[in-house]
Design a protein around this nucleic acid. Structure first.
Lengths: 268, 268
DNA sequence: AAAAAAATCTTGGCATGCCATAATCTTGGA
DNA sequence: TCCAAGATTATGGCATGCCAAGATTTTTTT
């Protein structure tokens, strides 16, 4: 008499992850359309899948009103996110995969990681708490530290500074750019000058060692923790290794695979 | 005008791998039933899939007569096998996963390994040529060394010896047993005594250091290269690391997941 | 050999997971 | 009250599996 348990397919995991992310952006139910956009599938398909997830107890759904994750659903999401971020760090650190490519790779592997492999990787990395982009890694008990107090670089005024703590992993372009210019999470930043009308920011990194003009889109993706000293537990840990391999090949931009995630990039 | 290329799904890869293995056991077309048995699905499903693979040029099919891989099909098979064996070694060596569990893990991951990740792993391992069970790893150009001259331990007569070069990766039981008793590929073996009527063999390992009774099923799965010295390129390489972690927890047998592959275990 | 029996293979109908398109319904603001 | 945006419901397609019925090949029996 058990309730058709279906499977925890990659699709289901992706839905949970997406709902979790969207939900934590604005504290409100997630709409069908928002999900469809994020997952790059049609609203019709999303609607059908949501009905199923509801039946499986992963989400609470109010037709025409949106969905929220149940505790079970949140667990699924956090497991996948833990997988994803552990993998990102593992690929970067242990296999020396370039910073900008780990995301796409992890996106696939996250659905296939056994519990055993997960814990072996976590052990190998010393139970890390941040991935290479500065995103926090949920603990084995699936606890995610409170979102720290950050602003996007975009919102800093001239003279303000802080520590660059994270950046969306979804856009390889940006990551490649930052990497090529030797910028990595953990760096200290300060806004030297703000061009008006959405113009670039002139920013100094690493205590004035380097200066850099940062465009609006990029500035919006970069999260800055306020304060002079490396705030909280974040900074110094994950940065040195990442820093180590900015393989400057000149600032030439090549437009390649722009992964989804257009609007506000996905900072969970 | 291109021919509907479909996808190279996990299913397709598994079929190619299975055909490759069966084909190289007996030099003859592979039958539908043999495939069905190996893949643990019904002959009907196999038949349908074979028709498709034929259409895609991966196999040459003669209805009611069996199939053979085309060069394209063989390439698919070898890629997957390369993935599988690289992963096995990687999991064992880099992540210290126990010998008997790497197979199941690799079975899933092999279908999801990108070219880039493959080459990073190969690089990290120093372009190895043998996996932890002694199976040869196809080169990046998909060349597989000629099968060396081996016999199963089963077939050695009293007084005969050689080097234990490989064992099927498909049965965790066996691997756990060998591991628990400190036996690994690369070891020198010699048959001390043969009990008649399918009874156990009394075998000495590592130059008489240890003696061990080996039952018929296990003896059939262990491949021995003849000769006194470590034959060819095989032995000494992969063995020491593997040896290092035989984590003896007593010879207690627990019957767990017996992966498919009943008859002659799958030595490609 | 020829016929009968057994083994093997193929076909056709059906199910599930997941997505698409198109038509239809709800909701909430003008 | 009406409409447009958003959500939902058919309906259909593709991949992959199952089962059961029919076709073919092989083996055995006579």
């Amino acid at each position: 008499m058990a309730v058709q348990e279906h499977q925890r397919s990659p699709a289901v995991e992706d839905y949970c992850k997406a709902i979790f992310t969207l939900e934590s952006r604005v504290e409100a139910p997630v709409s069908t359309n928002a999900l469809a956009e994020r997952l790059q599938i049609t609203p019709g398909s999303v609607s059908a899948m949501l009905k199923r997830l509801d039946g499986e107890g992963l989400i609470a759904r109010v037709p025409y009103r949106g969905v929220r994750l149940t505790p079970a659903g949140r667990r699924v999401a956090l497991e996948v996110i833990r997988h994803h971020r552990l993998l990102e760090l593992f690929l970067a650190e242990t296999l020396h995969m370039p910073w900008d490519r780990v995301h796409a790779e992890a996106e696939v592997l996250e659905h296939v990681l056994s519990d055993e492999l997960e814990s072996l990787i976590a052990a190998k990395l010393g139970d890390p708490t941040r991935d290479p982009h500065g995103d926090p890694i949920p603990s084995a008990e699936l606890e995610l530290p409170e979102a720290e107090d950050t602003r996007s670089l975009d919102r800093l005024r001239e003279g303000e500074g802080g520590v660059f703590v994270r950046v969306s992993d979804a856009d390889p372009e940006m990551l490649r750019y930052l990497s090529n210019h030797g910028v990595a999470p953990g760096d200290r930043v300060e806004v030297i000058e703000r061009q008006p009308f959405g113009g670039p920011l002139l920013v100094s990194f690493a205590g004035g060692e380097r200066e850099q003009a940062i465009g609006g889109q990029l500035a919006r993706a970069m999260r800055i923790a306020p304060g002079q000293a490396p705030a909280g537990e974040s900074s110094a840990e994950s940065s040195p290794e990442v820093r180590a391999r900015s393989e400057r090949r000149g600032p030439r931009d090549r437009s390649s695979d722009a992964t989804a995630g257009e609007q506000e990039p996905a900072q969970v």
